[in-house]
């Protein structure tokens, strides 16, 4: 530490200095709203989730089947329109046990986000979702899981139409 620290110790700040307006800041709360058009591929994906089904799409050139579906193969640039219904079961590719919430506060009960390779899709093609009805300590890579759906009348055409995946 520099010897000057003793000569120039600085001025400590406290929360009170902020609260009392001695430190000047400007606050602004943004108003940002978006309505993203889902488009051809994701509209069908969401519509099928509402139907209680997972749909993927197959590339006619490299033969890979991916989910969520897309209009062009990201590997070989082939247009894709070969729709394939997939099962609502799959295998955990990777997961984490997350003890902090969306807003960075501490969670007592952890969330378990996982990439689930859906049965019927190509190896490595999966969807990101949450695991539940399972003890966090019991989750393993390679575990077989199954979708738990919302009741049909509560589904809206969203990824949350699947509540979570649970062990089969």
């Amino acid at each position: 530490m520099s010897a000057n620290v003793e000569n120039f110790p600085g001025t400590p700040l406290s929360q009170a200095d902020f609260d009392e307006g001695k430190i000047l800041t400007t606050h602004w709360k943004p108003k940002l709203e978006y309505g993203w058009d889902a488009g051809v591929a994701i509209s069908r994906y969401l519509a099928e989730l509402k139907n209680g089904r997972i749909i993927g799409i197959k590339c006619s050139r490299c033969r890979s089947t991916v989910v969520p579906p897309r209009v062009v193969c990201e590997w070989c640039w082939e247009p894709m329109d070969d729709w394939v219904y997939l099962k609502d079961t799959g295998t955990v590719n990777t997961f984490s046990i997350c003890y902090i919430r969306w807003d960075a506060s501490r969670a007592k009960e952890p969330q378990i986000p996982a990439v689930i390779e859906i049965d019927g899709a190509s190896k490595g093609a999966g969807i990101l979702h949450l695991l539940d009805e399972v003890n966090a300590d019991d989750v393993t890579i390679g575990m077989k899981v199954q979708a738990v759906w919302k009741p049909a009348d509560e589904r809206t055409g969203a990824i949350t139409d699947i509540r979570y995946f649970k062990p089969t």
């Binding site: 889902a38 488009g39 591929a41 897309r70 209009v71 062009v72």
Partner: peptide
């Protein structure tokens, strides 16, 4: 407005 295409599909069409 372009409600028929997502931004990704709009970009894909132009790129193709």
């Amino acid at each position: 407005i372009t409600p028929d295409l997502s931004y990704k599909e709009l970009m894909y069409e132009a790129a193709a």
